[in-house]
C-alpha cells in the first residue's frame, strides 16, 4: 500500500511536469498551428531563470587577498555576499527562498522571450509545412541550448529548495497510515502545477479574452471578420505558453538539477503526451500528462518489472501506440485538427 501511494505521488508529480509542458505545446499548436520543438528550450530557460535569480541574490564582492595563495600560486579571491551584507537576516531569507521567488523574475523574462520568439521567427513559418516548422524550431532549440551551455557550462547546477521545504513529510499520516514519507518540494510542485493549469484553463474558459482566443482556434477567419486582431491575441497566447513552460522549469530545479539539456529530456515525452491527449485539446494534454506520468511510475515498480522487464522504459510509447490505434485523434482530440 505504501508503495502504491508513493508511486501514485511520483506519477502525479512527473505527470504535472509533462502536463505543464504539453499544455503550452497544445496552446501554441491550437492557436498558431505551429509544431514548436523549441518549447522544451523554454522550460530550460525558465530553469535557468531560477539559477540566474539565485545567483543575483548571491552576488558577492570579490577582493584579492595577496596573503593567501591558491594551490597553483596565484592570490586567492575573497568573496563577501552583498544581499546579506545589506539586508541582514532578511537577505538570508531571500536567498533561501530564491526558487519560488524566481517565478516573479521568470514571468516577465519568459513573456519577453516568448513574444520575441514568435514575432522574430516563428510567425514567418505559419503558412509553411509542418516539416519546416519542426526544422526551424528544433534549430532554434539547439541555438538556445548552446547559448546556455556557453554561459553556464554543461554540468548540472545544484539549486536547493527553501530549507523549510527541503525535507520529507509523512503523507501516510494524512491518510491514516504511517511512515509514508514524501519530499515537501514535490508536493509543492504538484500543487503549483495544478494551480497554473487551473488558471490557464480558467483564463481560456471564463474571460472574454480567452473566449476570443478559443473562437479563433475554431475559426480564425470569422473572428477576423468581426474586426478582432486575432494575430495579436495569438502572440499573447504564445507568450503565456512560454511563461507556463518557464515557471514550470524554474520550480522544477530543486527536483532535477538544471543543465542545458533539461528541456530536450522532457520535450519528446511531452509531444507524446500531446498526441495521446489529442492534438489541440488543452484538457486532453493535462489528462494525458498525469495518466502517462502515473503509468510510468507504476511500470517502474519491481513487482511489475519482474513480470515485464524493461516495461518502465517503453510504457509511454506503448500506451501511445495503443491509444492511436483505438482512438486516432487521441483521448480528447478535436475533429479536424491535423487531419487535412
Amino acid at each position: 500500500m505504501d508503495q502504491l501511494i508513493l508511486q501514485l505521488l511520483n506519477g502525479l508529480d512527473k505527470g504535472a511536469a509533462y502536463a505543464l509542458i504539453a499544455l503550452g505545446l497544445t496552446l501554441v499548436f491550437g492557436t498558431l498551428g505551429i509544431v514548436n520543438f523549441a518549447h522544451g528550450a523554454l522550460f530550460m530557460i525558465g530553469a535557468f531563470c531560477a539559477v540566474v535569480f539565485s545567483r543575483l541574490l548571491q552576488l558577492e564582492t570579490v577582493t584579492i587577498d595577496p596573503a593567501r595563495l591558491t594551490p597553483w600560486g596565484s592570490p586567492m579571491e575573497v568573496r563577501t555576499p552583498l544581499v546579506q551584507a545589506w539586508l541582514g537576516d532578511f537577505g538570508a531569507v531571500l536567498v533561501q527562498w530564491s526558487v519560488p521567488l524566481s517565478i516573479l523574475f521568470a514571468i516577465p523574462v519568459m513573456l519577453i522571450v516568448g513574444v520575441a520568439m514568435e514575432r522574430g521567427l516563428i510567425r514567418y513559418f505559419y503558412k509553411r509545412a509542418h516539416a519546416d516548422q519542426i526544422l526551424v524550431t528544433f534549430g532554434l532549440a539547439i541555438v538556445l541550448q548552446e547559448i546556455v551551455k556557453a554561459n553556464f557550462g554543461a554540468n548540472p547546477i545544484p539549486v536547493t529548495a527553501p530549507a523549510a521545504l527541503a525535507g520529507s513529510v509523512d503523507v501516510g499520516g494524512w491518510l491514516g497510515l504511517s511512515g509514508v514519507f514524501y519530499p515537501w518540494w514535490r508536493l509543492v510542485y504538484l500543487g503549483f502545477a495544478l494551480a497554473v493549469m487551473g488558471l490557464v484553463i480558467a483564463f481560456l474558459r471564463f474571460t472574454t479574452y480567452g473566449m476570443v482566443v478559443r473562437a479563433g482556434m475554431e475559426d480564425r477567419q470569422t473572428v477576423g471578420f468581426l474586426g478582432i486582431d486575432i494575430e495579436k491575441r495569438f502572440t499573447v497566447v504564445f507568450g503565456i505558453a512560454a511563461v507556463v513552460a518557464g515557471i514550470a522549469g524554474a520550480m522544477y530545479t530543486p527536483i532535477v538539477s538544471p543543465n542545458y539539456h533539461i528541456g530536450m529530456d522532457f520535450l519528446v515525452l511531452s509531444f507524446v503526451v500531446v498526441v495521446v491527449g489529442g492534438m489541440g485539446s488543452v484538457s486532453g494534454a493535462v489528462f494525458a500528462g498525469f495518466l502517462l506520468g502515473i503509468l510510468q511510475s507504476f511500470a517502474s515498480m519491481n513487482e511489475v518489472k519482474n513480470i515485464l522487464p524493461g516495461i518502465d522504459q517503453v510504457i509511454i510509447y506503448l500506451v501511445a501506440v495503443v491509444v492511436l490505434l483505438v482512438m486516432p485523434r487521441g483521448l480528447m482530440g478535436r475533429k479536424g485538427v491535423m487531419e487535412n
Binding site: L6, N10, Q296
Partner: peptide
C-alpha cells in the same frame, strides 16, 4: 532526469 520511481521502492 527523475529517479523518484526507482528510489521509492
Amino acid at each position: 532526469a527523475d529517479f523518484s520511481q526507482y528510489i521509492t521502492p
